[in-house]
Amino acid sequence: MTIADHDMSSTAVESATTESRRARFLRRFRRQGWAIGALVFLVIVAISAIFAPWVAPHDPLSQSLTDSFAGPGSEYWLGADRLGRDTLSRLIFGARYSLLAAAQAVLVATVLGVPIGVIAGLARGKIDAVASLVADAVLSIPAIVLALAIIGVLRPNLTNAMIAIGIVYAPRLFRVVRSAAISVREETYIDAARASGVGMLTIARTHVIPNVLSPLLVQISLALGFAVLAEAGISFLGLGVQPPDASWGVILGQGTVKLEEQPLLILFPGAAILLTVLAFNVLGDGLNDSLGREIRRE
């Protein structure tokens, strides 16, 4: 038996799927019509928020009492509020606060949840036991209640509130990452790497994190939706963004004051919140379906 025979023996590579993982993800994601719609919507919202001064038709703060409670029309597409401020422009600027706040919360949750999750999943034993116990304890606190408590101790401030939301959300990311890390740890390629003298930190970085990425992405999308909703709730109660600045929650809250005179004032901010939260959730589901394992047949 010579080596040459072996060369021959594997020349016919199984022609199965030669597409890369990215190509496979794109192929599968393309079939998710709703998720693509959600992504497009979110991108439009994000771009308008970033370029708000150029996109918004009016200055969101300029008042015009003559236009108080103006209905939707050519001047004010979505109408105006009690002070005659353009609702559309306020919503566009409000998106800045809402999305930024959501991003803050999710960043905090990720920074806390992911590294601890990877370490707990890989290390097992006492570290895992303690981390899981803390996570369960934090998870039992209702997010909004903790946020309100922190605001009560400090002062009404959106950043503090969103850090609180992030802390309460961190255990969810921790759990997802930990269980993904545990299942990766059982794979023999981790043993193979250890046997080749690769250190544990390198293993975490090169083998575990990439495998954790897919479920994490799904969770982050869902977390963003949750954070947008939480921000709206806190600001609605007047404990987040302080007027005259306005997030969607603030706009919604102010709209309720004169609900009987102009019900449209809560319809539009409400719709903005609803659609954005929904979009994050639909996107999360779509990512889940296109990143998850493909069911293969023999």
Binding site: M1, S9, S10, T11, A12
Partner: peptide, 24 residues
């Protein structure tokens, strides 16, 4: 005696050879 392995692999279903499927 040394083993006498069959070289290569089973042809995939979508790329069967024109003649006998074991021919290659």
């Amino acid at each position: 005696e040394p083993l006498d392995p069959i070289p290569g692999i089973v042809p995939p279903r979508h790329a069967l050879p024109p003649g006998c499927w074991f021919e290659p």
